[in-house]
Amino acid sequence: MLEITNLHAQLAPASLNEQSSRGPAPGGEGKKILQGITLAVKPGEVHAVMGPNGSGKSTLAHLLAGREGYTVTEGQVRYDGKDLLALSPEERACDGVFLGFQYPVEIPGVSNLYLLRTALNAKRKRQGLPEIDAMDFLAWVKERVKQMKMDIAMLHRGVNEGFSGGEKKRNEILQMLVLEPRLMILDETDSGLDIDALKIVSEGINLMRSPQRAILLVTHYQRLLDYVKPDFVHVLARGRIVKSGGPELALELEQKGYGWLEAA
């Protein structure tokens, strides 16, 4: 489903990139962040990506979702056999790639409901389906809001506007449930959640597990992996995958930290 081969990426020079005026901070131009990532994800699998702060996890996630401001200098990414990097962010989304943001963006004035409907219809359009009936849509969304134990009233508030950190993360999972993507990349969705919220979020993720779908979980903590059992665990350090293994690797990391791997 997803094949990343020897991916190298660095920050794009700001002045040459018309779109990235708000992207990379000035001064970091040309900084190498990913230095040869190879990773294959098959349908039905859950991969956990762990690693110290600044190792490039979010960068990898954003590259897969199509954020501008990075230059791929080597390697490639195939999704369903197609060149993923050639697609715009919206094309990727409509083809079933979903990124749960580490820092979800606030968009005051645009209601959550409006975003969800527009997004869902965009995807249906790409699939050649007609727009969803308004009533059906509402029912579809409301059911999922309940699953996430959120207040229905939030649908009419601005996207993430004034949400607490935990509410934002739940909202990301809600969007995922509504849009039903096939490849889910969840960037530290568990950070900043209390125990109850972590359970709700995990249940939401598990609802989406299926033989046709795959999940890439970026996390620092074993506790999420207790709920969402990964098939593989990878450790990212300084832009490379320095170790891969089964679920037991995560437990080992919990005990030993990252130091022993980074030194290697």
Partner: peptide, 29 residues
């Protein structure tokens, strides 16, 4: 004076909205 918030644009696009729709939406907000 400047352009629309790039991170908001990207966020909307990552949810499947076209660049044009995302722009107009942010313009209105």
């Amino acid at each position: 004076c400047g352009q629309l918030d790039e991170s908001a644009l990207y966020y909307l696009r990552s949810r499947g909205l076209t660049l044009e729709t995302a722009r107009n939406l942010l313009l209105f907000t």
